[in-house]
């Protein structure tokens, strides 16, 4: 017998900055985007191809991480199968290309539609569960997608599928140009950032944020959070699907490994590493994750011996992720949230 059926929201600590700077101008994301825009010029001085390809990859994962942050950071919906959307986007490109449809004008809508449908279907089932069960059921759906991809023997099965070339853009081969591709990815990143930023600040976003903190209260004012959470899940899945389209183009390759549960785990890690519920935290987290991996692996093949403990230390000593550290350095409490 549990005599305390009554809902309470006392567990969540009062965070003054849970309204993420709607009024205050956020400089950090602007600085980030300016730096990213200037980078290609700096890259010309060094190994340009390598630099552009690395940072393009970072931005693609940042896009995926932003999509996850939308539901994870703002909605407390811990999707442990988000990499499935990367794969769906990627396979949409790969499979269509294999049948001769190479134009992004077709591939992108198909990828978005497929990711959206998958999100709608799995979200509708997953959102019936709460907490840990939600984590696990999204994991299950991710695994289903993973094994489904493996079974696609016509499209490479286990080994994946190599693209003959990057997607065409209305018949033109512009994406083959690394600088153009970099610019396109950056533009999409900024676009999706602005989109998600607007969403979390909107009426819709307020419902999602409220349901994160106190679902019972939401129902007691007349909201049924399910529909809103499902819509957010679909939006998030579609953005991540878009990231999958870009990833396939960047690597000119798709494989089931895109959807492995470790990938989903990495996406979660990126978001937490950067700092939850800020969107640009997700960008910083993705960058930190991938760049650290790149740099460390340049020094030693056993870089994971450093990287693993680094993650543990971040959890133990740097609450709020890298943004949390930044905020503390600047002496502002909670500036990162």
């Amino acid at each position: 017998m549990k005599p305390l059926p009554e809902p309470s929201a006392t567990a969540a600590p009062p965070l003054p900055a849970s309204r993420p700077g709607f009024v205050r101008r956020e400089w950090l994301p602007i600085i980030l985007f300016v730096l990213l825009a200037l980078l290609p010029f700096a890259a010309m001085l060094g190994p340009e191809k390598y630099t552009l390809s690395l940072v393009t990859r970072v931005m693609i994962f940042a896009l995926a991480a932003i999509s996850l942050d939308l539901i994870l950071g703002y909605g407390a919906l811990v999707s442990f199968g988000h990499a499935a959307f990367l794969g769906i986007g990627g396979y949409a490109v790969g499979i269509l290309a294999a049948h001769g449809f190479q134009d992004a004008a077709l591939q992108v809508p198909v990828a978005l539609l497929a990711s959206g449908l998958f999100a709608l279907l799995t979200g509708a089932i997953s959102l019936r569960t709460k907490g840990v069960y939600f984590i696990m059921i999204t994991l299950a759906f991710g695994q289903m997608a993973f094994f489904f991809a493996i079974s696609l023997s016509a499209y490479g099965g286990d080994d994946g599928l190599t693209l003959a070339s990057r997607s065409k853009l209305f018949g033109l081969s512009w994406l083959e140009n690394d600088r153009f591709f970099y610019g396109l990815v950056l533009a999409l990143l900024i676009g999706c950032y602005a989109l998600t930023r607007a969403i979390v600040a909107s009426r819709f976003g307020r419902v999602i944020r409220g349901a994160k903190e106190n679902p019972v209260r939401m129902e007691a004012v007349g909201f049924s959070p399910f529909r809103y959470q499902l819509a957010a899940y679909v939006i998030s899945g579609m953005i991540c699907g878009l990231a999958g389209v870009l990833l396939a183009n960047q690597a000119e390759f798709v494989a089931p490994a895109y959807m492995a549960w470790q990938r989903s785990g990495e996406l979660i890690v990126m978001v937490i590493l950067g700092g939850l519920a800020s969107l640009h935290g997700a960008i910083i987290g993705a960058a930190a994750f991938l760049l650290l991996e790149e740099i460390l692996s340049g020094y030693t093949e056993h870089w994971k011996l450093i990287f693993g403990p680094f993650l543990v230390l971040v959890v133990l000593f740097a609450r709020g992720g890298l943004l949390g550290i930044l905020a503390r350095v600047r002496g502002k409490s909670g500036g990162g949230r």
Binding site: V78, I268, G308, L311, V312
Partner: peptide, 24 residues
Amino acid sequence: HLYARDHLDQVLATFGIIIFLNQA
């Protein structure tokens, strides 16, 4: 040190342990 933390912190830290031990 993680019992009192939320699930996400636990996921992140134990994920780090996996990465470390698989390499170790």
